[in-house]
Design a protein around this nucleic acid. Structure first.
Lengths: 341, 341
DNA sequence: TTGTAGGCGTTATCAA
DNA sequence: TTGATAACGCCTACAA
C-alpha cells in the first residue's frame, strides 16, 4: 500500500507538506505542489480512509436509515436514497446504508463508533424511537418526514397541507362544489400519521375558504372498503362531483367503481390523487395528481446534516431547520369542468 | 469520547486485555471478563471505527454499487439492497451505498482507500467497465448479474435459461402447441444483454425438446409496437395460443390487444410472464409468472464477498463461485388448457 | 491468564 | 513556505 510517507519521499518533501497539499489548508509553492502531484500519480496513492478518520476525527460518512417496510412507494424511496448519495458525494461524503431492523441501536452504533459523522432518517414516524438516541449522542441529523416534536433537529418533508390545498383549489377552479376526500384507513389517522392529517387539514381549510362542501372519509383501500366508502359518500352527498384520493390503494378501485356506477371520468366526476407521478400515469385515465419533489428532499436533507456537522466541528450551536417542499399539481386526464346540473 | 484505555483503567486491567476480551481472540478469566463488561456498560464504550480500521486493516464495510437508471424493476432492486444490508450485518459488516454516476472511479476510490473491504456490483452489464478495476485492485467482489467473462470473480444471478424452460414446460403441459415469445426490444439483444438471450435460449431449447412450434419476436413495449408484434405473430402463426412475455412494458398492451381481438385470457390464449410477482399481481387477469428469488440474490452475494475477503486475509487464492438461482413458476389466472381447435 | 510496546497512516501543532 | 513530531484509538506480536 502506498502511503503519504511514500509520496513525501518520492517528492522529496516532508509528509506534512503532502498532507497540506492534499487538504489545501496551507499554501504550497507551485513547484512543490507539482512535484507532489507527480509523485501521487506516479505511485498511485490513495489516502487511507481509516487513518484519515482517526486523525481527522471525521469519517466523511453519513448514515442513511431506510425503512424495511413502509407505506412509502418504493421507487420514491429509492429515488430519495440515490439523491442523498449523489448529494453527499458533492460534499466529499459517502453514504452508509442502514436498515431499520436494528432499530435505534443501529443509529446508536454508527454514531457512537464514529463510523458516521451524521445521520439521515427516512420514513420518520411521529413518535420515533430513534430520535432520543440522536439527542443523547448529539448526533448531527436530518429527518425526512416530520416527527411530533422536531425540537433540536433538522427536518424536511413534503408540504402536505399545501398539497391538500392545491387539490381543493384545482377542483374549485373547475367549478366543482361538492367534494369528497378519500383518505387512508382510520388506523392511519388513529396513530396520527402526520402526512395524512396535514393533507386533510390543508384541504379542509382551503375548501372552506373557497366555499366548497366537502366530506372526509377514511378508506382502507381494498375494493370492498372503497365500494362502501363511495356508496356512503354518494348517499350523503349525491351531488358530489370531485374526488381527492390520498390512499394509493384506493385509486384503482375508485376508478372502477365510478365507471361501474355509470360515471365517466372526467365528464361526470373528477378525480385528483395525492401520489407520485409515476403512479398517476399508470391509471386509465391518467390521473391529475399532486406530488412533491423527491430528489430535492434528499438534497435538502444532505445540506441539513452537513450544516450540523460543520456546526459541531466549529463548536457552534446548530440551527434547527424545517423545510417544507412545495408540491406541484400536474393536470392530466382525470379532472375536468364540473358537469352542469 | 470513551476509549479502550478508559475501559482498561476502569476495570483495572491493561488495554490489550480489553481488546482481546472484545475480539475473543484469547481466553480471558471469567472474573476479569465480567469486570471489563461492567466497565464497558458503565462508561458506555463504543470502539472507534476509524482506529479499528487503521489498526486491523479492515474497515468492516462493503460497498454496494447500485445503478442510477436501470431496466430492473425498482422495488426488486431495493429488496436486494436491503437483503444485502441485513446479511452483511450478520457478518459484522456495514454497507456503503455507491451510485454508478462515479463510474469505475467510485469503485476504485473505495477499494484503494480501504474504505471498503469488498464490493458488490448490481445490474452488471456483459462488458462492464468496473470489472477491470476490480481485477487491478484485486478487490474482493461479487457481481449480481453475469458478465461476459466472469473469470476471477464471484457471480450470482437468476437462472434465466431455467426460467425460459419453465415457461415452455408450463405451456406444453397445458397442451399448447404454438407459442410466441415476446422479448425485449431488438436494441437489448443487439447489445447482448445477457439475461434476455439466456431466457430465450432456455425457452427455445426446451420448446424444441417438447416439440413445440414457436416464434421469438422482439418488442419495444409501447402499445403500438406491441400491436405490430402481435399482428405479425398472428399472421405468421394464426394457431398461436400461448404467449411468453419478458418485456414488462409489453404486458399491459398485450393483454388489451388480445382482449380487443376477441381473445379471452386464459380461455382462448394463455399468457405467462417472466417478471416479479408483484408486477404479475397487478394485471387483470393476474398473470402466471416465472421469477427468481430476490432476497437470496443479495444473501449469496454477501456470502461470496465475505469468502473472498477471508481468503485475501488468509493469503489464500479465493475461489470463483457462480451461483444461478432457480426460478419459480407461480400459476395464476392467465394460463389454462389450450383451447380445442 | 495478563501486560508491554510498537505500529497502522493521517492530521495538526509548533517551530523554523 | 516547509519540517518535525506528537497525537488519534486500536490491534497484535512478544514477553512475562
Amino acid at each position: 500500500m502506498v502511503t503519504l510517507a511514500d509520496v513525501a519521499r518520492h517528492a522529496g518533501v516532508s509528509s506534512s507538506t503532502v498532507s497540506y497539499a492534499l487538504s489545501g489548508k496551507r499554501s504550497i509553492s507551485r513547484e512543490t505542489r507539482l512535484r507532489i502531484e507527480r509523485a501521487i500519480t506516479d505511485l498511485g496513492y490513495h489516502p487511507n480512509a481509516g487513518a484519515r478518520a482517526l486523525a481527522g476525527k471525521r469519517s466523511h460518512i453519513i448514515a442513511l436509515v431506510v425503512p424495511l417496510h413502509t407505506e412509502v412507494y418504493v421507487p420514491t424511496m429509492m429515488e430519495i436514497a440515490i439523491a442523498v448519495t449523489v448529494a453527499a458525494r458533492e460534499h466529499g461524503y459517502d453514504v452508509l446504508l442502514l436498515t431499520n431492523d436494528e432499530g435505534p441501536d443501529g443509529v446508536q452504533r454508527v454514531a457512537a463508533s464514529g463510523l458516521a459523522d451524521g445521520v439521515i432518517l427516512m420514513d420518520v414516524r411521529l413518535d420515533d424511537d430513534r430520535i432520543p438516541v440522536l439527542h443523547a449522542q448529539r448526533t448531527p441529523a436530518a429527518l425526512i418526514g416530520l416527527p411530533d416534536d422536531p425540537g433540536g433537529l433538522s427536518c424536511v418533508d413534503h408540504d402536505f397541507a399545501a398539497a391538500g390545498a392545491l387539490c381543493a383549489d384545482h377542483l374549485a377552479d373547475l367549478g366543482h362544489r361538492d367534494i369528497a376526500f378519500i383518505g387512508y384507513g382510520s388506523a392511519v389517522y388513529r396513530r396520527h400519521a402526520g402526512y395524512a392529517e396535514r393533507t386533510v387539514n390543508g384541504f379542509r381549510d382551503r375548501a372552506q375558504h373557497r366555499g366548497l362542501r366537502f366530506l372526509h372519509r377514511p378508506c382502507e383501500g381494498s375494493y370492498e372498503s372503497t365500494a362502501g366508502t363511495l356508496a356512503r359518500i354518494l348517499a350523503d352527498r349525491p351531488d358530489t362531483t370531485g374526488f381527492v384520493v390520498q390512499n394509493e390503494a384506493a385509486i384503482g378501485p375508485l376508478l372502477s367503481l365510478l365507471r361501474a356506477s355509470g360515471r365517466t371520468v372526467p365528464e361526470d366526476a373528477s378525480v385528483i390523487a395525492v401520489c407520485p407521478d409515476q403512479l398517476a400515469e399508470q391509471h386509465s385515465p391518467r390521473l391529475t395528481s399532486v406530488t412533491g419533489p423527491k430528489k430535492e428532499l434528499g438534497q435538502v436533507a444532505v445540506e441539513q446534516v452537513m450544516a450540523r456537522i460543520a456546526a459541531l466541528a466549529a463548536g457552534a450551536e446548530p440551527e434547527d431547520e424545517l423545510a417544507l417542499m412545495p408540491p406541484e399539481l400536474v393536470v392530466r386526464e382525470s379532472t375536468g369542468p364540473a358537469p352542469h346540473r
